[in-house]
């Protein structure tokens, strides 16, 4: 899995590429948090369009980023959610905390 960082009109954007599982999430999450430490954005877009697989490790990743942004008074937004990733996030009720696109 690969993580790409961009800036968009609302702030910053993280694009997740490839397969998000337990193996990939550990490294990716540490890397994203380190990047947030440096950039301190108030708006973070998590773009999931390029994911080809996601299991429940994605729930923990989203919740971790949600907590991080909420603690700083910022906002986490999820975009371009593939159907398989939506099913996983909805199973855990993540949409109650983070708005996910219809």
């Amino acid at each position: 899995m690969r993580v790409e960082y961009k800036t968009n009109h609302r702030g910053t954007e993280v694009v997740l590429w490839g397969e998000l599982d337990h193996h990939a999430a550990r490294t990716a999450l540490a890397e994203i948090h380190a990047w947030l430490d440096q950039t301190m954005p108030m708006h973070l877009t998590l773009n999931m369009a390029r994911l080809s697989f996601m299991d429940s490790s994605g729930i923990a990743l989203v919740l971790s980023l949600y907590k991080r942004m909420a603690a700083l008074g910022g906002i986490l937004e999820i975009t371009d959610l593939p159907p398989f990733a939506r099913r996983i996030l909805k199973a855990a009720g993540v949409e109650k905390l983070v708005s996910i696109p219809a």
Partner: peptide
């Protein structure tokens, strides 16, 4: 811990 969701 925090990096697992308990949804497996």
């Amino acid at each position: 811990g925090a990096d697992r969701s308990g949804m497996g």
